[in-house]
Simulated assay, not measured.
Amino acid sequence: MNIIDDLKVQYKLGGIAQKMIYWNIGCFLISLVFFYQFKVGAFDFPNWIALSSEPAVFLLKPWTFLSYAFFHDGFFHLFFNMMVLNFASSLFLTFFSPKQYLGLYILSAIFAGLIFALGFNLMHLSGAVVGASAAIMAILVAVTTYSPLMNVRLLLIGNVKLWHITAVILILDLMQFRVENSGGHISHLAGAFFGFVFIKLLQNGIDLSKIVSAVLDFFANRFKKPSTPFKKVHKNYKKPVEKSTSRIVVKDKKQQQIDEILDKISQSGYDSLNKEEKEFLFQAGK
């Protein structure tokens, strides 16, 4: 099994948070090929990917209110964001469902994009923004709002309250608001605000993530392959008993082996599998 197959298996077995990290990394690799200016050492994102503050641009390209949240302006920008995303995601998914996670990521990115565009126009500024920071801040603030006193163990520091970590990140954003990357900090704070509102509404019985779930389900059903029409079987027809039993036995044995491998992953992680187990799991997932 090569590294590509190994990554495919990890993607299939991974949860929504791992898939989101894969999407961000994948988009960054694409941007390295198509949008990186090697002569000047900088990214040059087109206005159909980055979110522009110009109404004449974003009104014609409304998808940029989401696409910008999957691209990053440099390796360290991506690395830091994915570290925080992995941290915040593991905490968020302790309390909430993957659908709520995906809904919060998408809605907070759109909301933060709208606030960025509005803020820049009010300040008579022009620019563009990329990065998942706003959506990540929404996830972090959401779980902090829900469980602010949760203990988190940090390397070299020890146990701290979750709200302490979130407060430090927010204060750093506020301190840099007028120094550099004002557009980025506007979107960060907007994402944080949305995460707070998301949880408060959820605690009052309003789940905003259902909007995203309904839209995704709509498109999934539109592109879903039609089911095979039911074929009536003559009631006097009897399936060969021997063949039917044989198929069931093979299926149970294969499923049992898959279950044993998945149990091993849950206990010791994917890296604990040997080469034969990884190969078997990859073939079973085809």
Rank of each mutant, 00 (worst) to 15 (best):
N2I: 03
I3F: 12
D5V: 07
K12W: 09
I16G: 01
A17C: 00
W23F: 15
W23D: 13
C27D: 07
L29E: 08
S31I: 08
F34I: 13
F34L: 13
Q37A: 11
V40K: 15
F43Q: 05
F45S: 00
N47H: 13
S53A: 08
V57Q: 10
L60D: 10
S67P: 01
Y68I: 05
F75V: 10
F80D: 05
N81R: 03
N86E: 12
S97R: 11
Y101A: 06
L102Q: 10
G103M: 05
G113K: 03
I115L: 11
N121L: 04
M123T: 10
G131T: 01
S133C: 00
A138P: 04
L140Y: 03
Y146W: 01
R153T: 08
L154D: 00
L155A: 10
L155R: 06
L156N: 13
N159P: 04
T166Y: 01
L170M: 14
I171V: 14
L172I: 06
D173Q: 15
D173V: 15
D173T: 15
E180T: 11
G184Q: 02
S187V: 06
F193W: 12
F194P: 07
K200P: 01
K210I: 12
V212L: 02
V212T: 08
A214W: 12
L216Y: 11
F218R: 10
N221D: 07
K224S: 09
K224T: 09
P226V: 09
E242S: 12
V250A: 14
I261G: 07
L262C: 07
D263W: 10
S266A: 13
S268N: 15
K278S: 06
F280C: 05
F280I: 02
